[in-house]
């Protein structure tokens, strides 16, 4: 049995083969799906912010407790207090969106600064930043968050602050290794010989031209991470507190009724979490494969 792989020539000007055509079909599917999720999240955020929801998410309807999906205008059914699940899912995004962005912003900004310090100037700075990131890495993140929550209050922003800070070492080490790799290629040295100022080299040659892909990918992965973190904490009861809906506390609240056969109050937010995180990860993965190449 012979299994043939097909290789076909591209007719036309060789350098005209566009960026997207060179990409793997699978990567493109990842990216399209990821973008779809991102758009869905943004649209949900806007809808939630404008209160354009099918039902009032806080409205308790004692006549329709645990209504299964698609009853009386409730597309995904209602929960144990008769609140519309779809509306709560949409408004739940509010709990993630801005805090998630905060976490990303902290991780990327501080990570980039430390990465550049360590990679570009090296020497003692490199040693110091490496020690700091080792320190951060060796401290269990969940414990840190629980400490913060115990010390202050169970606020989503506190949690995201910690998530962002604990993500700094990962970003910093990525940026650092990228800079060390670029330094081997000599063009940074050539730029110095040209008389360019350090900040031009750092911002233009290193960050803008060679690290932006990494940063975008880290941003998508960071968002997924933030959602996951909030979910686990809410499930444990430390995250967003009732009655403010978040996907994590929806799963937690619904889980009590799961064994009674009422699967939808917990399954709907669980699936939402699954597909959203998958979307962000696939987006990051696809972008990584296309922008950075499969090997590196």
């Amino acid at each position: 049995m012979k299994r043939y792989s097909q290789y076909t020539i591209e007719v036309g000007d060789l350098w005209d083969v566009s960026f997207w055509k060179k990409a793997d079909t699978m990567d493109l599917i990842y990216i399209v799906y990821g973008l779809f999720i991102v758009i869905l999240v943004v649209v949900s955020y806007v809808l939630g912010a404008l209160s354009l929801l099918p039902h009032n998410p806080q409205e308790i309807n004692l006549e329709l407790l645990m209504a299964p999906p698609n009853t009386a205008g409730h597309l995904l059914g209602t929960d144990f207090m008769g609140r519309d699940i779809l509306s709560r899912l949409i408004i739940g995004i509010q709990a993630y969106f801005l805090p998630g962005l905060l976490a990303i912003a902290i991780a990327l900004t501080a990570g980039t600064i430390f990465g550049v310090l360590a990679g570009y100037w090296g020497g003692g700075l490199d040693t110091t930043t490496t020690y700091i990131s080792n320190l951060l890495n060796s401290f269990p993140r969940l414990v840190l968050i629980l400490l913060m929550v115990a010390a202050f209050k169970p606020d989503i922003y506190t949690i995201m602050l910690v998530v962002g800070v604990t993500n700094i070492p990962a970003v910093a080490s990525l940026i650092r290794s990228k800079i060390l790799f670029l330094k081997q290629k000599n063009f940074i040295e050539a730029a110095m010989a040209l008389g360019l100022k350090s900040w031009v080299i750092i911002f233009k040659h290193i960050l803008w031209h060679n690290c932006r892909a990494i940063l975008i990918i880290q941003a998508t992965l960071g968002m997924a991470e933030a959602i996951l973190m909030e979910t686990s904490l809410s499930y444990l009861g430390f995250g967003v507190q009732e009655p403010t809906p978040s996907w994590g506390n929806m799963v937690q609240a619904g889980a009590n009724y799961f064994m009674q056969g009422n699967f939808w109050p917990s399954t709907a937010p669980a699936l939402a979490i699954l597909f959203t995180i998958l979307g962000f990860h696939l987006l990051g993965d696809g972008l990584n494969n296309i922008l950075e190449g499969k090997r590196g």
Binding site: K2, R3, Y4, S5, Q6, Y7, T8, I9
Partner: peptide
């Protein structure tokens, strides 16, 4: 036997190859 090659006007247009075999 493991490859099929389609050529036209001296250029290779398409190749089918059984890599494993």
């Amino acid at each position: 036997d493991y490859v099929k090659i389609n050529m036209s006007t001296g250029r290779i247009m398409e190749v089918y190859k059984d890599n494993v075999g």
